[in-house]
Computed example of a mutant assay.
Amino acid sequence: MTPEPAGDDAALPPEPAGPAMSGRNVNVFYGQKQALFGIDLDIERHEVTALIGPSGCGKSTFLRCLNRMNDTIDGCRVEGTITLDGEDIYDRDLDVVELRARVGMVFQKPNPFPKSIYENVAYGPRIHGMAPSRTELDDIVVSSIRRAGLWEEVKDRLKEPGTSLSGGQQQRLCIARAIATRPDVLLMDEPASALDPIATAVIEELIDELRENFTIVIVTHSMQQAARVSQKTAFFHLGKLIEHGVTEEMFTNPRHKQTQDYITGRIG
């Protein structure tokens, strides 16, 4: 294994202007049932955008639209426009595998592959041809595990199964796996809901560090977590986007009564 690699962002081209992702008039249907209604939402670069709202309000449905995970659900239909760096991600000519390398995802429950810690992280870069040599692959694996705040805990255990780690460590391994393909955007669907308070605090601290390099969208059922980790918050209710804005302002001075009612616990 190689020592810590030099910064792998040094030679990256300048980022495009404008939001990282945008949704315009997004409607989602599961068969005849409409789940999202006319969603307009910009995801700003190097910010954490929290999606909040009651269970079944559409926040996870919208999150899955951003990397076309809804494509895997029979009968699901997405209307409207969603762009990544101005490019329509639902364009017929777009490579969905490539899209999911650029828009990574971390799920609610840790789901490491039944492979070694090393192979969990190496998998994405290998299938996407990002590392022509073993040395380059080693560099990506080490860098990703370091960024996920896991290196000191696993550096002598890289050949052990990823499933041998604790729940919090497994979730950080899944984050390392997601960022190994150097995505532009990282989606997180309640990434700490299955973890204890200590592991949750570690994940939240990590999210704050990762936004320096990635744009993050997080679905959370915890308003306290949204307040701690996000710069922008979007409140969904019954499939509609009720309010979107600066997190601190939304939690202290919401513009809509429905937002106020949700934040104060009157609806939920």
Rank of each mutant, 00 (worst) to 15 (best):
M105T: 08
L66M: 15
R100C: 10
E87G: 10
T135S: 14
T259G: 11
A192L: 02
T163G: 13
G86M: 03
Q258W: 08
E204S: 04
I207R: 01
D9K: 15
H221W: 05
F107Q: 00
N120L: 06
E209M: 11
T81G: 02
I218H: 00
E152H: 10
D71S: 13
G75F: 07
Q225E: 02
F235I: 01
V96M: 13
R211H: 13
M250C: 09
L206V: 02
Y262W: 10
S222C: 08
G53T: 01
T83Q: 07
K232F: 07
G129P: 06
V96A: 15
D71C: 12
K232A: 03
A50S: 13
P110N: 00
D93H: 12
G38A: 12
N27Y: 14
A10Y: 12
M21G: 10
L63R: 02
T233C: 04
I140Y: 08
F236S: 02
E15Y: 06
S133F: 07
S193T: 05
V96N: 13
V217P: 11
I179E: 06
G31V: 04
A227N: 01
P54D: 02
M130F: 09
I179V: 07
D139T: 02
P197R: 04
R64G: 10
T247R: 00
T220F: 02
D208Y: 00
D156A: 09
E79F: 07
F251C: 00
P125Q: 04
V142A: 12
E243M: 02
E47I: 00
P191W: 08
T264W: 08
Q260T: 14
T264A: 05
E249I: 05
G168D: 06
A194G: 10
G129Y: 06
D40G: 08
V202K: 15
L186M: 13
R68E: 09
P5I: 03
G149P: 05
Q34Y: 07
Q32V: 09
A50W: 04
D71E: 12
I175Q: 10
Q34C: 10
Q231K: 00
P132R: 11
N25S: 15
A20S: 10
E212D: 15
E44C: 00
T61C: 07
N111Q: 14
S143G: 04
D93R: 14
K240W: 00
G18D: 09
E153I: 01
K155N: 11
R177S: 09
D156V: 00
S222H: 08
D196F: 09
T264Q: 13
A10I: 14
G75S: 05
